[in-house]
Amino acid sequence: MAVAKKVIHPLDKYLRSDRLPHIWCPGCGIGIALAAMLRGIDRRIREGKLDRNKLVFVTGIGCSARVSFYVDFDSAHTLHGRAIPFATGVKLANPSLEVIVVGGDGDIAGIGGNHLLHAARRNMDLFVVMITNFVYAMTGGQLAPTTPLRVYTTTTPYGNPEPPLNVIKLVASLNANYVARASVTTPHYIESFTYKALGMKGFRFLEVVSTCPEVYGRHIGLRNPVAMLEELKKRVIYKAHPVVDESDIDWDKGIVIGEYVVRNNPSYLDLIKRG
C-alpha cells in the first residue's frame, strides 16, 4: 500500500509491513518458510529473471494461506482448496505472470486434492508450496490428510484410524517437473528449492515440513516451540538424490528431504504453444 515504509529487515521490501504483526502463533513454522521463500524470490528478482510486478501469490484458506496477506505482490486470498484452479486461470489468461500457490496440507492435498493431482498431471505452469503441519490448525486441531496413524486430534478422540497421505509420492507419480521437500529446520533448502523452481517451467511442487507447537504440538505432547523444532530437526535427513520410495513421513524412521523429481517434460503452456 501507499504508506512509506521504515525498513528494518532486508525482506521488508516484499512485505506489506502495515499489516504486521502477523496472525501466526509463537513457534509457528510458516514465518520461517515464507522468509526463506522470499529470499529465493529475491535472488531471482536481483538477477533480473523475475519482475516483482509480474509475480502473483494465490492462496486458499488456512494458516499458510494467510501469506497472501503479508506479501507486497499481486495476491489473492481465495476459497478453501481452490487456490490451484484460481492460479491456473491466472496463468493461462496471462502467461507472462509467475504464479505461486501457497497453502497448508489440508488446503492443498485435502479439500484441494483433486485440483492438485490434475494440475500436476497437466504439468501446469505453477509453483505450489505446501506447508505441512499435520493438522487443521486454524479451525482448532482437527484431522488432516497428513496426520499420522493413531494421533489424537479433536475429531479423532480415539486416535486416527486412517493412514496418512504421502503427497510427495502422489505428485511424483504424475507429470510434475519438480517435486521437492524441505523443512522449516532447513530454511536454506526452502530458499534454494524456491530459487530453482522459479527457474523452471511446468508444475513445480515443494513440500515444507513445518512445526505447529500450538495445535499439533498439543496433540503429540510437544507444546514447547523450541522442543518441537529440535525434535523435528533430529528426524530430518537431507539426501542429494532421494528416491520416492523413501518419502513416507515417519516420525520414528525419519523424514527424508531433498529433490525427489527434476524433469524437463513439456509444460502445459509448451503443449498449447502459448506464452
Binding site: V56, T78, F86, T88, G89, L92, A93, N94
Partner: peptide, 11 residues
C-alpha cells in the same frame, strides 16, 4: 475458480 482467476488476470 479458474474463470475468476482469469478475470483477475485481465481476461
Amino acid at each position: 475458480n479458474a474463470a475468476i482467476g482469469a478475470s483477475w488476470a485481465g481476461a
